[in-house]
Amino acid sequence: MSLRLVIMGPQGSGKGTQAALLAERLGVVTISTGDIFRSHMAAGDELGTLAQSYTSRGELVPDEVTNAMVRQRLAEPDVAEGFILDGYPRNCTQVDELDDILASLGTRLDGVIELTADRGELLARMARRAAIEQREDDTEDAIARRLDIYAEQTAPLTASYAARGLLVTVEGTGEIAEVAERIATAVAGVRS
């Protein structure tokens, strides 16, 4: 059985790591808007330059750009067996767009996993990542701004998904394997 999932949570909550582990476990692809943006930035192409102009200020890339990339990606053949979206949707407009994209493909979302963690833990994780990866978009101000944007724009989406019976919340604090097991248990509930 293929699954079409969204993984949500503030930056630093471990979404990317956990999405990759879950995708491997389920045999589906992970679609990370962050990875797509970083790839374009590294290539220095037009989209990468545009994305960089926003992320370097701690802002999010505009919906039009993100929606078009996600629509194109979800139409690719490797997505037919299922997917985990990481970093999308991030606002109500994108929720509606994702519903439209999936409807046009004759499918629907099966579940939404929300990873939660304390803000202090998130800031510490992001600071460690910035030091290790030397990512210029992970300045202290940019990190704080992205967490604020998440709280303002993305976190309220959980109420919509909860009302639709799609949301499962998982505590994202702890060892990677421990969190992965919590997610696996949550996904088992989605599959049944």
Rank of each mutant, 00 (worst) to 15 (best):
L5P: 00
V6Y: 00
V6E: 01
Q11S: 15
G14Y: 02
Q18A: 11
A20E: 14
A23V: 05
A23N: 03
L26D: 05
G27V: 08
V29E: 12
S32H: 07
T33Q: 05
F37A: 08
H40V: 02
H40W: 01
M41T: 07
A43D: 09
G44C: 12
E46C: 10
S53G: 15
T55E: 00
P62S: 11
E64T: 11
E64F: 11
V65G: 02
T66L: 08
A68T: 13
M69E: 05
Q72E: 15
G82R: 03
I84Q: 00
L85V: 05
P89Y: 01
T93S: 09
Q94D: 06
D96Q: 14
D96H: 13
E97A: 15
I101E: 02
A103K: 13
A103F: 06
S104G: 15
S104K: 11
I113R: 01
A117P: 04
G120D: 15
E121L: 13
A124P: 02
R128D: 14
R129E: 00
A130R: 05
A131Y: 06
E133A: 14
E133R: 09
Q134D: 13
D138H: 10
D138R: 10
E140A: 15
A142N: 12
A142R: 05
A142T: 07
A144C: 09
R145Y: 07
Y150L: 07
Y150C: 08
T154V: 09
L166F: 06
L166W: 04
L167T: 00
G172Q: 03
T173A: 14
I176P: 04
E178Q: 14
E181A: 12
E181C: 06
R182W: 01
